[in-house]
Design a protein around this nucleic acid. Structure first.
Lengths: 147, 147
DNA sequence: ATAGCTGCAAATGCTTTGCAAGGCC
DNA sequence: GGCCTTGCAAAGCATTTGCAGCTAT
């Protein structure tokens, strides 16, 4: 009987935030709502900020940055480094890898199990592996030799 | 008979630059000399600039950046994105992957063939794979349960 | 001589920070 | 009410750019 409306979603978000020890403020709920309401997303801070404004949620860019880092720290998001100027975030925190389109500056998941890293090296003395990032850099293919 | 002195090295650098169509200026030769004189190196623009100054080669930071990008464009260097604020460069342009120590912000090669990427996905429609970057993020291991 | 380079410093773009006002418990 | 958050704008960094003077060919 309950509709999957924004109220329900906000409660979800609030619960999710509480679960990781973050106070569920209006802004955090709004952002969590945008981020976790749908499927996996890849985005930059600025993109999320724009989305928030488009959804009529007032959040400052500074708060977007702060919140994003808190979410990463809480394990709700993953941060990815593919381009020099800009940080990317990913709502998918599970094991998976990425395609990065260098011409468009676009990031997307490699479909499930599309990459397997074999024969991993052991971590150097005194260190442990935290994570393995595989980025397959792609670009527009030149036209096939078909003219 | 001929010593492996700096003159010889400069000539090597000049030839290398000419080979890729770059005019062998004093600054480019100095940087090429620092970069390609020894083994593989991983560095940031600022580190290279510091090295150049330490070696009494006057080069401005702006020229270091310009030169680095020219070298990358010419295939003499590879650029790597592992941390959000900063670009890393690598003199090893062959196929290989990296360890990135998140605590120290240090990049190093994974010893030869230490990583194998199996079952690569095909590039999306209309694109081709340019390169595959594997970054194994490591951190200091907590002390073994040995106290 | 001339086209290409270099250096300086200002500009840029992303991200962080300081501090006063506001919101959650 | 108290403490954590937010927002604004300024500060901070790494990197890029404009332009006058210099340099390799």
């Amino acid at each position: 009987m309950s509709r999957p409306d924004s109220t329900t979603r906000m409660n979800d978000a609030a619960a999710r935030l509480r679960a990781v020890g973050l106070r569920p403020t209006k802004q955090r709920i709004a952002l969590a709502d945008l981020l976790f309401g749908g499927g996996d997303r890849h985005f930059t801070a600025e993109q999320l900020h724009a989305d928030a404004l488009a959804a009529r949620k007032r959040v400052s860019l500074a708060t977007v940055y702060n919140t994003l880092h808190q979410f990463v720290g809480a394990g709700l998001l993953r941060e990815i480094s593919v381009a020099q100027g800009r940080s990317w975030f990913d709502t998918n925190t599970g094991t998976h890898h990425h395609f990065y389109h260098v011409d468009h500056g676009e990031l997307r998941d490699i479909p499930g199990g599309g990459v397997t890293v074999a024969s991993l090296p052991s971590a150097p003395e005194g260190t442990q592996i935290e994570r393995i990032d595989v980025v397959v850099r792609i670009r527009n293919a030149p036209r096939q030799a078909a003219d």
